[in-house]
Amino acid sequence: MIRTATPADIPAVHALIRELADYEKAPDEANATPEQLHEALFGERPAAYAHIAEDDTTGEAVGYALWFLNFSTWRGVHGIYLEDLYVRPEARGAGHGKALLTELARICVERGYERLEWSVLDWNTPSIAFYEALGARPQDEWTVYRLTDEALGALGGRA
C-alpha cells in the first residue's frame, strides 16, 4: 500500500533515510534531523512531500519516496524531482518501488506535470535496470554540479 506521509511517519522516514545513506555508502553525509524533516514536509510552507510504502501484512513502513516540485522553462510547467526512493532490502521485489513511482507518475499526469526526474548513482546497477525496465532513460548529456559547505559559503558571501 502506498500512502501520503503524515507527521507520525517522521521517525520511520528518518530511519529509512539513514538506511539509504548506508546503502549509498555515505552514512556520515545524512545529517537531517527529524525536526528538519518535519519542518520540510509539514511546516508552514512545505518544501517537500513524501509517500510511504507499507507492508500489506504488518502495516510497517518498508519504503518511501521523498520529492519536491521543479519547473521546466522549456515546457512551462512543473515536474516532480524525486530526491529519494528507497525500499528496505527485505521488502524488495514485492512491487513497493514500482508502486511508489507509479503514484508519483499518477500525480504528474493528474496535475499536468510533464516530467518525473531523479538521479541514480552510476554503480547502482540494480536500480538502473529497474528504472530502465519502467521506460526511464538516462540523461547522459547532463553533468550534475553541486555547491556545498565552504564553496557555497564563499560564493554566497559567508566569511
Rank of each mutant, 00 (worst) to 15 (best):
A105D: 05
P126K: 05
R146G: 03
V120Q: 11
Y81S: 09
A26G: 04
G135F: 00
S127D: 04
F71N: 03
W123P: 01
R146F: 03
T6P: 00
V13T: 05
A154L: 08
D149S: 12
A30C: 12
V87A: 00
T33F: 03
W142S: 05
A21N: 05
P89Q: 05
A65E: 00
Y81Q: 12
E132T: 13
L85H: 04
G76Q: 09
C108M: 11
A99G: 06
T33C: 08
D84Y: 01
T148G: 09
A8I: 05
L101V: 05
A129D: 11
E83W: 12
L85A: 03
Y145R: 14
P126R: 08
I80F: 04
T57E: 14
F130M: 06
A61H: 07
Y64G: 02
P138A: 09
R158N: 13
G43E: 01
W123A: 01
T4H: 11
P7R: 08
F42Y: 02
L104V: 11
A133E: 02
E114D: 14
N70C: 11
R45P: 04
P46I: 07
L101K: 01
L155N: 02
H14C: 05
L37R: 04
P7Q: 09
T33R: 06
F71I: 02
Y23P: 01
W118A: 08
L147K: 06
A65Q: 04
E19M: 08
R88Y: 04
E24D: 09
A47I: 01
P11S: 07
V144Q: 15
V120G: 07
Y49W: 10
A21Y: 06
A8D: 14
V13G: 00
A12D: 11
T73P: 07
T57Y: 05
A30L: 02
P89W: 00
D84E: 12
A5Y: 05
E19C: 07
M1L: 10
T58C: 09
A99I: 06
R106A: 11
N31R: 15
A40D: 07
E141H: 15
P138C: 06
E150N: 10
V120L: 03
A48M: 14
P27E: 05
E29Q: 13
E39N: 10
R158T: 13
E19L: 08
L69F: 15
H78C: 13
P46M: 09
R111Y: 14
L66I: 10
L69K: 15
E44W: 02
V144M: 15
K98T: 07
D9F: 00
Y131A: 03
R146Y: 08
H38N: 12
L104I: 11
I17S: 08
E90Q: 12
H78K: 09
L147Y: 12
L134T: 01
R92I: 01
L82E: 11
T57M: 10
A65V: 06
D84I: 01
G97E: 00
I107S: 03
Y113H: 12
P27D: 07
A48D: 01
T4K: 14
E150I: 14
L100I: 09
A50S: 06
H96G: 01
V120P: 02
A94H: 12
A50F: 06
A136P: 07
